[in-house]
Amino acid sequence: MREFSEAYLERTREGMWDDSRQALEPLALDSRERVLDVGCGTGELSRVLAAECPGEVVGCDADTDLLEFAGEHVPVVAGDALRLPFADDSFDLVVCQALLINLPDPEAAIREFARVSSDLVAAVEPDNGAVAVDSSVASEERLEDQARRAYLEGVGTDVTLGADAREAFTEAGLEVLETRQYDHERTIEPPYGEAALTIAQRKATGAGLADDRETMLEGDLTNEEYDALRSEWRSMGRDVIEQMEERTYRRREAIPFFVTVGRVAEAQ
């Protein structure tokens, strides 16, 4: 499973559910007594669950460094998603966000979620192949699409899982109740915050692309093609910084997430 830094999780999940929580309605959060957030990371979803649930919300993650941040908001327990340190039926809802896309066997994780749930299991998973970008820098959308496709070809897990999580739920023996879509939008516009400036600098230096180089080369991308892409990427980053200096840079990114909810067999 891939590991993520606290800064990465904060940057990519910042603002999720602030605009609407309608896609979470099938979880019936207002009636939950004990909820487990698996792969909670720094606790972005845990905080939302805690705000909506009258009962207890517990965060669980294998990365104890990330749990230090999540623990500021909810009780946390270190544990592996495939071997949860809880007894059967310990919770009435087990949920994860952007976790299954990083696992080689999502079905195995869902089975484990069902073991510790007496009622519902839910997964909030993106389709990273359907990300839409609109930018004031003409080349940014094309280059991000090219880099994304190269990354998807090389990554070892299904990071486009999205709505297809329904199949994994069914294979794990759950009754799929509903799937709802939530589009997480991230916007950069003036005035620019520190995070936006850091992203622009990483584009101009090619650092962000360099982080994914090994994965991208696992697919069909050649070293020569990667070098050409990185050169264009850095040029694009310089254009971003130039527009930022002129306060004309604007970027909108929409990532489709799918909330899939299933009921464990014992609760049918």
Rank of each mutant, 00 (worst) to 15 (best):
L66C: 04
I101R: 02
Q146P: 08
A114N: 06
E175Y: 09
N128C: 11
E224G: 05
V76W: 00
P106L: 01
T12N: 13
A123R: 04
A165T: 15
E144N: 14
E140H: 14
P126L: 13
L82S: 13
A172W: 00
Y226G: 02
Y8D: 14
A138W: 13
L161T: 12
E232L: 14
D212C: 07
A254N: 08
R252G: 05
A78L: 10
E72D: 14
L99M: 09
E52G: 03
P106H: 02
A207M: 08
M1T: 12
E153N: 04
D19Y: 11
A163Y: 06
E246N: 14
E167T: 12
L99N: 03
A122N: 01
G129T: 01
D80T: 09
G154Q: 04
T215I: 14
Y151F: 15
R247V: 08
Q181T: 11
E178T: 01
A254P: 05
T260A: 06
G41I: 02
E125S: 06
L143A: 12
S139G: 07
I255F: 07
G237K: 00
S20R: 10
L24I: 04
D183H: 11
D211C: 09
R21S: 06
R238T: 13
F113K: 01
I241R: 15
D19A: 13
V121E: 02
E33V: 11
S90L: 06
A204V: 05
D127I: 02
D88H: 13
L161C: 01
T157A: 11
G71R: 00
L229G: 03
A265P: 03
G39M: 00
L152N: 04
R142E: 15
Y192H: 07
R252M: 12
P126E: 14
W17C: 02
D88V: 13
A78V: 10
Q243S: 09
T215C: 06
L24C: 06
Q22N: 09
T42L: 08
A265N: 10
L152K: 00
Q97G: 05
F69H: 13
R180C: 11
I110D: 00
L27H: 09
A163P: 08
E225H: 06
V58D: 01
A109S: 04
G208K: 09
S46M: 04
T198K: 10
D220W: 06
D164N: 15
F169S: 02
L27I: 11
A50M: 08
V159S: 11
T157K: 07
P126H: 14
T198N: 10
D18G: 08
F113V: 02
T157L: 07
I255C: 07
A228G: 12
V121S: 03
R252Y: 09
A254D: 12
S5A: 08
D211T: 13
A23S: 14
P190T: 13
E33T: 13
E125C: 09
V77C: 07
A163I: 12
Y182A: 10
G59N: 01
